[in-house]
Amino acid sequence: MKMNRQKILDFFRKSENRATVILKDKSKANTTIKDALGKAVSNKGQLDGVWEKMVLLFAVSKDYVNGNYTEIPKRSIVAILGGLVYFLSPIDVVPDFVPVLGFIDDIFILNLVYRQVVKDLENYKAWKDAQIEYIEDVDGSTAT
C-alpha cells in the first residue's frame, strides 16, 4: 500500500479546520483530547515511535484548553489539535483497522505536527518544569 502524501496532507488540513471549530468549545475540545488519549493508550504498541511526542502534544493541548498555558501561538495549538483530530478519525487515508499499516499515516501527521511546533513545545516544557519547581518550593516536597 503506497502512502499518498498529498492526500494525507489534504485530510490533515480538514482536521485543522475541524480543530479551529472545536477550540471554540472548551467541552468539545476536552472531549476530543480525552478521546484521542484513550485511543492512543489502547494502541500504544503501534505508536511506539511517537509515544513520547504524543504525550507532550496531549499535555500542551489540555493545559491550553483548560487555560493553564496560553503562551502558545494559535496556529500551533490548531496544528496540534488538528493532529489529534486526524489521529482520532478511524477513516483517514489509511484506515486504522488495516493491520500493521493502519497508523502509518497518523504517525506521519503527528511527526509533522511535532516538527512544526517543536520550538513552542520546548517553551511549554520549560514552563511545565518551572511549575513543578514552584510546587516543590512552596510545599518543600519533591514532585514525582
Rank of each mutant, 00 (worst) to 15 (best):
Y69M: 06
V65R: 01
I91S: 14
L9C: 02
S141H: 09
A40I: 06
Y69G: 04
Y114I: 06
E16T: 07
T70G: 11
V113E: 00
K74Y: 15
I104F: 02
V94T: 11
L56D: 05
M3Q: 09
V117D: 01
D10Y: 15
V118S: 12
D92F: 05
G38L: 08
D129P: 00
L47M: 09
G140C: 12
F11S: 04
A126T: 14
W127K: 15
N4K: 12
F103V: 13
S76E: 12
V50N: 01
G82F: 05
N43K: 03
T20H: 03
P73K: 15
S89I: 02
F58Y: 07
P95C: 10
A29R: 04
S27C: 00
F97N: 07
M1L: 08
I33G: 01
K2M: 08
R5M: 11
D129R: 07
E136F: 15
V94L: 08
N123Y: 15
T142H: 14
R13W: 09
I132E: 04
K7T: 05
A143P: 05
K14G: 03
L81V: 10
E16P: 05
N66K: 11
I109C: 02
A19R: 08
N4V: 13
D48C: 05
V100Q: 05
V65P: 00
L121P: 02
I77W: 00
K62I: 00
R13D: 13
D139A: 06
G83R: 03
E136D: 07
A29T: 10
K28F: 02
D48G: 05
K125Y: 12
S89M: 10
A36K: 01
V93N: 08
Y134F: 13
Q46M: 11
E71D: 15
T70K: 12
I132A: 10
D35A: 07
V138E: 10
V117P: 02
N4D: 15
D48F: 10
E16V: 13
V98T: 14
V65G: 01
K53V: 02
V85D: 01
T32R: 01
L57A: 00
A130D: 15
D120F: 09
L84A: 05
D139C: 09
V41Q: 15
F11T: 04
D35N: 11
K53F: 07
V100K: 05
L110I: 11
A126L: 14
K53S: 06
I22M: 02
V98P: 00
N17D: 14
N4L: 14
L37I: 00
G67A: 12
V78Q: 13
E136T: 13
K125A: 14
S15R: 06
M1H: 12
D137R: 14
N17K: 04
L56H: 07
K74A: 11
D120R: 01
L112K: 06
K44Q: 15
V117M: 09
R13C: 07
V65D: 08
G49Q: 08
K7C: 04
I22L: 00
F97L: 06
T142I: 14
K28H: 08
G45F: 09
Y124M: 12
K2I: 06
Y86I: 03
K62D: 09
L121M: 07
A40N: 09
T32W: 03
V85I: 05
F58N: 03
F12S: 03
K14S: 13
K128V: 15
E52T: 12
W127H: 10
